[in-house]
Design a protein around this nucleic acid. Structure first.
Length: 266
DNA sequence: ATGACGGATCTAATCCGA
């Protein structure tokens, strides 16, 4: 038995449905978790996913901004969303899937970016990000005996080799100590495993996002690892491999994030 | 210089991303 999932901040699902089709045709996965779909529920291209065999769809969209969706080839047994910080943003959806003989909860997150200034007193967006993270401390990798997986754009690059220059990004939102320490506390406190770093050693640079603002993203390779796949210890044991689809950053009209795949052997 | 592009929206100029 096997199980595979991918996470991808798509930066508009309607604009990039063609890229998603190309991706799913070349990289077979059971479940795809999308962030920043930037559309309302009724604008989600459900039919396109159904044509590709992803008949089970859970969407939590909103107009213009944010929005998350999880699509699956196999049944989604349940789904719900939590309104973190009670701001009405669509930044979370949890779906329940069969994983071999067991059931798992799959949390799909789009954590707030946090704005420019890394000071919660002067920057409300950074304050929102920190409060959102504080609420995430409640997430445990095992609840009532059920194992969980947590994926998404967490908008934090926690380790030194998750950014192109640790020194130069220490004051840049996404890699400040308050953010990286809090994310580590959520990880450890919930007994989560960082599956991407379980597969790729922490002394290797690894990125999943490169800014649109650079003329050529490859020249200096100034990226960050903002997208994550975490799981309960019991699931981490069956991880077979992680694939970061770096070439997706070079596709026509790309997202600024690339897909990350986790494959499990059960 | 990190670097100045790219998405959605009240289709023009503005907000937002990180």
């Amino acid at each position: 038995m096997s199980f595979s999932l991918a996470t991808w901040n798509i930066n508009s699902v309607r604009l990039r449905i063609g890229l998603i089709e190309d991706f799913l045709n070349t990289h077979k996965v059971d479940v795809l978790c999308l962030q920043e779909i930037k559309c309302q529920n009724d604008q989600f291209p459900t039919k396109a996913f159904q044509k590709m065999g992803y008949e089970h769809v859970a969407v939590h969209g909103q107009k213009g901004y944010h929005g998350v969706a999880t699509v699956s080839k196999h049944p989604i047994l349940e789904s719900h969303s939590k309104d973190y910080c009670e701001m009405g943003d669509s930044r979370h959806i949890c779906t329940t899937h069969n994983f071999g003989d067991e059931k798992i909860d799959l949390h799909n997150f789009y954590v707030p970016a946090g704005g420019d200034e890394a000071d919660p007193k002067t920057n409300p967006k950074f304050d929102h990000k920190l409060k959102f993270l504080d609420e995430m401390r409640q997430l445990k990798s095992v609840t009532s005996g059920k194992n969980s997986v947590l994926v998404g754009d967490l908008n934090i690059a926690p380790l030194e080799n998750d950014v192109w220059s640790h020194k130069q990004l220490l004051k840049v939102v996404s890699h400040t100590p308050i953010e990286t320490e809090t994310l580590t506390e959520i990880l450890d406190g919930g007994d989560w495993r960082d599956l991407i770093r379980q597969h790729v050693p922490a002394d290797e640079k690894l990125f999943t996002w490169w800014s649109y603002r650079s003329r050529d993203w490859k020249v200096n390779d100034r990226g960050r690892r903002l997208d994550h796949i975490w799981s309960a210890p019991g699931i981490a044991k069956s991880l077979q491999k992680i694939e970061v689809i770096r070439e997706a950053r070079d596709w026509v009209k790309p997202s600024d994030h690339v897909p990350v795949i986790a494959r499990f052997k059960l």
